[in-house]
Design a protein around this nucleic acid. Structure first.
Length: 446
DNA sequence: TTGACTCAACATCCTTTGCTACAA
DNA sequence: TTGTAGGTTTCCATGTTGAGTCA
């Protein structure tokens, strides 16, 4: 008989299993609680019996709401997750109803569940979805609330600070926007939870730092992946993606070229070549001590700024806004400077991280009602914010990540009668901006 | 309760017209 | 005219958020 228990953020066993190590002080084998499922399976497969005292789930009132009706692809997602032992990541595009799949998973498991989300906005969205579809009031951890219940929604930060105390209280753990989970800090949330059943939700699992390779260990493998292209025209609005190429002005061009020459010269002096992201990281760490490296980084940063925020994009934007004056338009920029420049030039409201919360809500509300036809935003609307529907997205500037591109596209894909959405990318020819554009689209599959 | 503030954590951050070649 | 194809480590800047503190 093997004894298995949970003690202050640790899984404790009186006999060995993979993932556990011997601890002198405890006088037994210990490991991170997320190994519970594996350890339990290992012991059972070894033919031993287990005195399992790990989980102490919070009681959950019977879920009386009728079973959630799912669309065909949502049903496939749920089935794939169940087949994988109720562990894994479901990849669905923004607006395809990931939440419903998760709520159906809660009904399936029928036991204490924690849902972890990255923003307070999502905290509230989940709360209302749970009340609407499951007729249960969930506990809330985060945004000033601290209330634990059979179904609890928490921010990553609050879950992190209370993980030890809550580690063995939930049977199912759902991680919304699960691509955040592999970050060094948030990862500990997944590791301290003993929850044997796990569901990750995202539209874009891949991370620039490559840490998404940790997801199978923390949550489970990707069990289904549906791209926006598969749902267009039926469950998501049909769409077109266009590119509009612009050129630098003579003035910008000479500044851009002199900055690039400065960068090349600095790199030559340093004996550094930039062939990979690692090379660039090396340059960044060098810049902390070395003035030539610092100058190289400055020249690089400034040249990118010129390319991404070129004057011709403003002119091009003017034409596009006139052409689509009868439609709701979301403009996305790379930085706050360009967002405010566009806001001044076209007299449209701008939203950035500097916009006070109340003002942001007001702008979104007026956009929803149609009083505002155009909003310009930096990257604040990329994720975790309930942005009212628009039918045209104009990407003035952005990162080179497929994730941001997919998320921005997702902002115009909410289906409506007779709607055909449009995403227009403004790209400055012959500069690092075209490389960024290439990179973000190459991985996006849209 | 609110708002203003600070702090910590997270995310992004790469190649340059060359030299090839070929498909859409 | 545009797109294609690969190797693996700790922070120059800026942008963004949640939590905590204090008035």
């Amino acid at each position: 008989m093997v004894k298995l228990s949970y003690r202050r953020g640790l899984l404790v066993s009186d006999s060995y299993a993979p993932g556990l190590r011997y601890d002198e002080r405890i006088g037994g084998y210990v490991g991170l609680p997320y190994k519970y499922y594996e350890v339990l399976n290992y012991i059972r497969e070894s033919g031993l019996t287990v005195d399992d005292r790990v989980l102490d789930p919070i009681p959950l009132q019977a879920l009386r709401a009728p079973r959630i009706r799912l669309r065909d692809y949502q049903e496939r997602a749920l089935e794939a997750w169940k087949r994988a032992g109720m562990r894994g990541v479901v990849v669905l595009p923004t607006g395809a109803g990931k939440t419903l799949v998760a709520l159906a998973a809660i009904q399936e498991v029928g036991a204490a569940t924690i849902i972890v989300v990255p923003t307070i906005d999502l905290l509230h969205q989940w709360k209302s979805a749970i009340m609407r579809h499951l007729s249960v009031t969930p506990g809330i951890l985060g945004g000033g609330e601290s209330d634990v219940a059979g179904i609890t929604v928490s921010t990553y930060d609050s879950a992190y600070s209370r993980a030890e105390e809550l580690g063995n209280r939930f049977v199912l753990a759902i991680f919304d926007e699960v691509h955040h989970l592999p970050s060094p800090g948030y990862m500990e949330v997944a590791q301290v939870l003993a929850s044997p059943y796990r569901l990750g939700l995202t539209a874009t699992p891949e991370r620039e730092d490559g840490r998404h390779v940790l997801l199978p260990d923390l949550v489970g493998p990707i069990v289904i992946r549906v791209s926006p292209a598969e749902l267009r025209g039926k469950y998501l609005s049909d769409y077109d993606i266009k590119r509009v190429y612009v050129s630098l002005t003579d003035d910008e061009k000479s500044r851009y070229e002199s900055l690039r020459a400065r960068l090349r010269e600095d790199l030559k002096r340093l004996g550094v070549t930039l062939r990979s992201l690692e090379d660039f990281h090396r340059l960044l760490s060098l810049a902390a001590k070395n003035p030539v490296a610092r100058d190289a980084v400055e020249a690089w940063y400034e040249s990118v700024r010129i390319a991404v925020n070129s004057r011709a994009k403003i002119d091009s934007l003017r034409k596009l806004l006139a052409e689509y004056s009868d439609r709701k338009v979301l403009i996305f920029t790379r930085d706050t400077e360009m967002a405010y420049r566009i806001s001044r030039e076209f007299l449209v409201p701008a939203v950035t991280y500097k916009t006070p919360k109340q003002e942001r809500l007001k702008i979104l509300e007026l956009f929803r009602k149609g009083a505002y036809k155009v909003i310009v935003a930096s990257s604040v609307f990329d994720e975790g914010v309930d942005v009212p529907d628009a039918s045209v997205a104009i990407v003035v500037g952005g990162y080179g990540t497929p994730r941001q591109f997919i998320q921005r596209l997702g902002r115009v894909l909410r289906p409506a009668e007779g709607k055909r959405a449009l995403l227009i990318e403004l790209v400055t020819k012959g500069t690092s901006d075209s490389r960024l554009s290439m990179r973000r689209r190459s991985g996006a599959e849209v």
